[in-house]
Structure formats: structure tokens, C-alpha cells
């Protein structure tokens, strides 16, 4: 039985060349077990989003390997990466990235239409508590509501992993807590591995595993024996 969802070895990412080169990742070794909630903490530019993009198949490493289960993402073609994202990965972004021209339900349908084993879009929206706003356009929704649509969109495909880049970054703390609660539910109900990149150190309390980033590398990894519920977290 597979126990690791992600495994990286000497994973490196360099932007640019020569003197202007920026080392976003400097040889990261990391194991992420299946079904955990993992929080990645660290200052801006420490490499956490870059890592998320690479293991999510959105970006390519410039060195090392990144494995999803036993498949090496760094060796995949564009076509294989597309397939991987389509079948396994759900994304939640800081700025929601909804299609402004589609309603909440249609934004979810955008994903369920191409997924292998999707859930009903209304079910996904009900999971995030938006069953009564399915026909609203993004411009008619508050920031928290928009982020919940984005989460519904990400979970509607029954993803293996849910990758969240600053999911509460644009939200107030009350709304943010509601969003984190949704992520926790998804983790529990669907068994998806959830990775959350955040600035807010207090959010680490809800994680199974906390990874601290600094300067393109992992500074330390903590395992939480006792997790807090999102409602109990302050930031």
C-alpha cells in the first residue's frame, strides 16, 4: 500500500540566469504521507509556493526529482502533467481565480465536465455551504464566498491532493476560519491530502505536519500530536 503522496529529492528551481538568477528552491528533500493536512509556513520568497506549483504540475523544476506516489513528475511530458492535474489535483488560489463570466455552479462544472470521477456540482457547493448561491456570478459574491466556490471547484473532482496557496490570504479571520473548516472537512470526508501554503503561523495548529521554509529550503518539520479545530485558531 502507498503511504506517501509526495516525495521530493534534491528538488531545485532557479529563475533567470547568471547574476540575476533567483534560487527559489535549493535542493528540497521532503516526504508527505497520504491523507494528512500539511501546512507550509515561511516568509515571502522562501520557496513554499514554488514547491506547491511544482508538485501540482503547474511548473517545472530545474533540478532533482518530485514524485507523486511512484511517478516522477519532473520526467513527465506536458501532456502527462495535464492528465495528472486533471485526474488528481485540486487547486485553491489566494485570489480565487474564478471565471468572472461563469456562475458559481458553472465554475464548478468547468472542472466536473473534464474530471474522471467527479461529484455533483451542487453537492460540492453544498459542502462549502453555498447551496443557495449557485447561480450567482463571482462579482455578486463576497470574497469568502468566492473562495468557497474556488474550494468547491477544487474538491468537485474528488481530488487525490488539494493544493492551497494562501487560501485565506485575502479574507478576514472569521471568513478565513470558515474556509479552513471546509478544507478540514474535505480532508476528512474525501481522504484527500491537503497542502496549505500560508503566512499565518497560527494556522499550523490545524495541521498534521508543519513544514517551515526559509531561503529556498526546509528549515524544520513539526508533527502535531494534537490538532486544533479551525474555530479555535486566531490570527
Amino acid at each position: 500500500m502507498e503511504t506517501l503522496t509526495f516525495r521530493t529529492r534534491e528538488l531545485a528551481k532557479v529563475y533567470g540566469e547568471g547574476r540575476s538568477a533567483v534560487h527559489a528552491l535549493r535542493g528540497v528533500d521532503l516526504d508527505i504521507p497520504k491523507g494528512e493536512i500539511v501546512v507550509l509556513l515561511g516568509p515571502s520568497g522562501s520557496g513554499k509556493s514554488t514547491l506547491l506549483n511544482i508538485i501540482g504540475g503547474l511548473d517545472r523544476a530545474t533540478g532533482g526529482d518530485a514524485f507523486f506516489r511512484d511517478r516522477n513528475l519532473t520526467a513527465m511530458t506536458d501532456r502527462e502533467l495535464t492528465r495528472y492535474r486533471r485526474d488528481h489535483v485540486g487547486f485553491v488560489f489566494q485570489f480565487y481565480n474564478l471565471m468572472p463570466s461563469l456562475t458559481a455552479r458553472e465554475n464548478v462544472e468547468l472542472v466536473t465536465e473534464i474530471a474522471r470521477d467527479p461529484m455533483d456540482p451542487d453537492t460540492a457547493l453544498a459542502m462549502v455551504g453555498l447551496h443557495d448561491r449557485v447561480d450567482h456570478f463571482p462579482a455578486q459574491l463576497s470574497g469568502g464566498e468566492q473562495q468557497r466556490v474556488a474550494i468547491a471547484r477544487a474538491v468537485a473532482k474528488n481530488p487525490t491532493v488539494l493544493l492551497c496557496d494562501e487560501p485565506t490570504g485575502a479574507l478576514d479571520s472569521t471568513t478565513g476560519r470558515a474556509v479552513l473548516n471546509v478544507l478540514k472537512n474535505v480532508n476528512e470526508k474525501l481522504g484527500a491530502t491537503v497542502l496549505i501554503v500560508t503566512h499565518a503561523a497560527s494556522q499550523a495548529a490545524m495541521a498534521d505536519r508543519v513544514i517551515h521554509f526559509a531561503d529556498g529550503g526546509i528549515r524544520k518539520i513539526e508533527i502535531n500530536e494534537t490538532k486544533l479545530a479551525p474555530e479555535e485558531i486566531e490570527w
Partner: peptide
């Protein structure tokens, strides 16, 4: 550009 990137992030192929 951004919407194209987003659709690709969801797993839409270049052809689609």
C-alpha cells in the same frame, strides 16, 4: 493569458 493558465491548471489540454 491568466484564464488560459487557470484552465490548464484544472487539467484542460492545449487542444481544448
Amino acid at each position: 493569458r491568466e484564464e488560459i493558465g487557470l484552465m490548464k491548471a484544472f487539467g484542460y489540454t492545449d487542444t481544448e
